[in-house]
Write a protein that binds this DNA or RNA. Sequence first.
DNA 1: TTGAAAGCGGTACCAG
DNA 2: CTGGTACCGCTTTCAA
Lengths: 352, 352
Amino acid sequence: METGKAKTVELVKPTINDLARHAGVSLATVDRVLNNRPGVRGVTVARVQKAVNELGYIRDTAAANLARQRVYRFVFLLPNVSEEFVDALQQEITSQSATLSNERTQVETLRMPYADSTEIAKAIDQLQRETVDGVAVVAPETPAVRDAVARARERGIVVVALLTDLPSSPRDHFVGIDNRAAGRTAAKLMGSFSVSDRGSILVLTSSRLARDHLERRLGFDQVMQQQFSGMEVLPTIEIDEAKLPAERILAGALKNLPDVCGIYSTSSSNKGLIDFLQKTAGKLVVIAHELTPTSQAALQQGVFDALISQDKGHIVRSAIRLMRSTVDAVPYNITQERIRIEIFLKENLPVS
Amino acid sequence: METGKAKTVELVKPTINDLARHAGVSLATVDRVLNNRPGVRGVTVARVQKAVNELGYIRDTAAANLARQRVYRFVFLLPNVSEEFVDALQQEITSQSATLSNERTQVETLRMPYADSTEIAKAIDQLQRETVDGVAVVAPETPAVRDAVARARERGIVVVALLTDLPSSPRDHFVGIDNRAAGRTAAKLMGSFSVSDRGSILVLTSSRLARDHLERRLGFDQVMQQQFSGMEVLPTIEIDEAKLPAERILAGALKNLPDVCGIYSTSSSNKGLIDFLQKTAGKLVVIAHELTPTSQAALQQGVFDALISQDKGHIVRSAIRLMRSTVDAVPYNITQERIRIEIFLKENLPVS
DNA sequence: TTGAAAGCGGTACCAG
DNA sequence: CTGGTACCGCTTTCAA
């Protein structure tokens, strides 16, 4: 810890020319072994590899991509539900695509009915290795999806599960938060923000994105039971505005259950809930997911008490970095790719 | 929102060759106007610029950097206090430097006594434009520092304020959290986690990093007063282990103040506090800053209730991206550079 | 099985 | 004031 102690990193960076000279072969041969292309004698390969090790060679990806005129082509497969968060995610992809195209990366977004996993599977099956390098998909974990993912990977397409994991599918990566931990966090906040240590909690969900919602509920129950056992967590109510307005459902539920003191919505589309709460006098602790203009306003007004969120920009960048490095079979920095569980309170809302 | 609606981005990317042809000039001339080098007639400049606009030319930075053999040289100036967080930050810089060197970026870390701003100013003054492109500095806001920053910028060195802002200095950017909002968040959690709505709160600080600590305290007071006015926030106690062990100070304070129900430490070095708390029976709500191995353990054990943190990896990457794009005078994505206020509870601790 | 040489998109030096 | 050209690090024909 002495003052001024400095730490520098050398930047000598041997090139393939150095390798060629060192190994006594031509550039072309060096390139062949570097990219393990066929047609090089074992001895020659060994000579080059020795040079690589001795000189500590690291390929300059930028130069390689330039020479190769490489373009990465990725597809995002999102549900076509009218959910603010998903729309915002697509918006994010679109707005990043400008920058991305300067980084030799092409992105395309496809929207599919989330519930119809046959449709999704079909869409995945239509992805040709010749035209796409990787796909990031938001999908339920059904056999149809699993098999389509497996086939895509066999074709050599990199597959990333987005938002909701597909652990039983052979996907290359999952990009999204740990939803069980998110549920635990929601519970901790719910319990802490409640003035009383008893009462019951309403849990709301949307039918879509099933697995992540389930995981959230599991984590929620776990902590409520461990730390706030005086409170009762009611069975999950599924809200589908298309069938029945949220306000109706909620009004009914609250009438029958007079001791409800909190609401946890595992969903990210809460317009109906917000409308209902704004008309209701009683003070409930309300926790929901995802920071969107709507939910942010609700938080600001005090209708919501906390929001569990994940950064859309980070998710998109992370998915792309992971697809890119997987395609190129180069390592990536895992710490940069962990999507954090963000907690928003009125007090730490981003200044917009 | 139709199914399958696709959004693609073209990747035609005109090159300087296209520009040259289109404008009827040579590559060299195109290069001159692109880099506004002298010695080109106004008409010619106009012709090239017209071509740029008509073709929608965007420079390929990777190719340019290759040709130019560009290397970015940045310096991080950190306090040489023995604080876990700062050490971790230096560690982060070091571990990123491997990747960075493959991105034509060289980083060097210097450690300076935080309290001695003349020393810091001297260190900044010693940075030569010939050998460094940018510096990220953690420093108190004193006239000496301000002037040194101004001189560095006049020499053409990009300056980024790290962790604690230097708003009155002509720094190019600030990389770190909004510390007032962080304090507000701490207060909200403090009030919510407290079982009673009265009692008094101890606020601890380390003498260093003054401005950010001050801002945290301000934000804290604001929300405590607004939302938890039944609680009393006591004057800040400065802890300097070198002078007097934290345990002594705390034991003394708590003896005189029997109604203390919570502790907010604006500092990130809390070994003494943790030691003290582990030996103490009473249940206090304790909130501190920065996720480190020590603080994480304290959170895990229930000694701490919440941690307000900022991501070190993000901070370093962000500082570097900002310095790079400022040096090159190219735009950057502000949303990617906003350092979030992270809230860690036992429930959302990263699985390590 | 190997090497020579052109070229990717730019930059920079030298000549005119 | 402008153009020609070698070169950055790597890839990719084509020919030997």
